[in-house]
Measured scan of single mutants.
Amino acid sequence: NNDALSPAIRRLLAEWNLDASAIKGTGVGGRLTREDVEKHLAKA
């Protein structure tokens, strides 16, 4: 759900053309954090 994404995370996902549903969020309530996105990018 994009409503739970911060503007910074939305921008990062758009910049790298990533799908938020493909990344497991570790923040409060399962929210994506910058670290989650960076770890996903490191694996790719």
Rank of each mutant, 00 (worst) to 15 (best):
I23P: 01
T26C: 03
E15K: 15
S6Q: 05
I9Q: 02
A42L: 13
K39I: 09
R10D: 05
A14I: 10
K24R: 10
N1R: 07
K43L: 14
N1H: 14
G27W: 04
A4Q: 13
R31A: 14
E35G: 08
R10I: 13
E38D: 06
L12N: 00
A8V: 08
N17A: 07
L41K: 04
R31L: 12
A20W: 07
R34H: 08
T33F: 02
A42H: 09
N2F: 08
I9W: 05
E38A: 08
H40D: 01
L18R: 01
D19S: 08
T33W: 02
E15N: 07
R10H: 06
N1T: 13
H40M: 07
R34A: 10
A14F: 11
D36N: 02
A4S: 12
L18T: 03
L32E: 00
G30I: 03
D3I: 11
T26I: 04
L18G: 04
V28N: 08
R31W: 06
L5W: 05
A4T: 12
E15M: 15
S6G: 07
A8D: 15
P7F: 07
V28E: 14
R11E: 12
G30P: 02
E38Q: 09
V28G: 06
E38T: 08
V37A: 02
N2H: 14
L5H: 06
R11G: 06
A14R: 13
I23D: 01
A20P: 14
D36E: 01
E15V: 11
G29N: 12
A22W: 11
R34W: 14
V28A: 12
R34E: 11
L32A: 01
K43T: 12
H40I: 10
G25F: 03
E35K: 11
H40K: 03
S21Y: 08
V37T: 00
L12I: 06
K24L: 12
A42P: 05
N1W: 08
D36M: 02
A42Y: 12
R10N: 05
A14C: 12
G29Q: 07
L5S: 04
G25T: 05
A44C: 13
A22P: 03
S21D: 10
E38R: 09
R10E: 08
N1Y: 06
K24G: 05
I9A: 02
G25L: 03
P7G: 07
K43A: 14
A42W: 11
N1K: 09
L13Q: 01
L13I: 06
K39Y: 10
T26W: 04
E15Q: 14
V37K: 00
S6M: 05
S21G: 10
N2S: 12
G25M: 04
V37G: 01
T33D: 01
H40S: 04
A20V: 08
T26Y: 03
G30H: 04
K24C: 12
L5E: 05
A14L: 13
A8E: 15
I9R: 01
K43P: 05
T26Q: 02
R34C: 09
L41F: 07
N17I: 03
R31T: 14
L5R: 04
K24Q: 13
P7S: 10
A42F: 11
D3N: 11
L32W: 04
D36H: 01
A22V: 11
R34Y: 15
S21P: 04
N1M: 12
N1V: 14
L32D: 00
A4E: 14
A4F: 15
K24V: 15
N2G: 12
S21E: 10
A8S: 11
T26G: 02
S6W: 07
A20G: 07
V37Y: 02
A44L: 15
A14N: 08
L32V: 09
R34M: 15
G25A: 10
D3K: 10
L12V: 04
K43S: 12
V28D: 10
L41W: 08
A44Q: 14
P7V: 11
S21W: 09
R11Y: 09
E15R: 15
D19G: 04
N2Y: 07
L41H: 12
A42E: 11
R11T: 08
A4G: 14
A20K: 05
R31S: 13
D3R: 10
R10T: 07
A8G: 08
G25V: 05
G29A: 09
A8W: 10
L5T: 06
A4I: 14
S21F: 09
R10K: 11
R31E: 08
R34L: 15
H40Y: 15
V28S: 08
L13F: 04
A4M: 14
G25P: 08
R11P: 01
R10G: 04
L41R: 05
L18P: 00
R31H: 06
G25D: 02
R34P: 06
A22I: 10
S21Q: 10
L13T: 01
A8H: 08
R11I: 08
R11V: 09
K43I: 13
N17V: 04
V37D: 00
E38Y: 15
A22S: 13
A8I: 10
E38I: 15
G29S: 06
L5D: 05
R34D: 07
V37N: 00
A8F: 12
R31I: 12
K39E: 10
T26V: 03
V37E: 00
K43W: 13
N1Q: 13
L13S: 00
S21V: 07
L5Q: 08
D36C: 02
R11F: 10
A8K: 06
D36L: 02
I23N: 00
E38F: 15
T26H: 03
K43E: 12
K24D: 07
L32S: 00
D36T: 01
R11L: 11
T33L: 07
D36P: 01
R11K: 14
V37W: 02
L32Y: 03
D19V: 08
K24Y: 10
K24P: 10
A22Q: 14
A20N: 02
A44R: 13
K39L: 13
R34V: 15
G27A: 04
H40G: 02
L18W: 03
A4V: 13
N17P: 02
D36S: 01
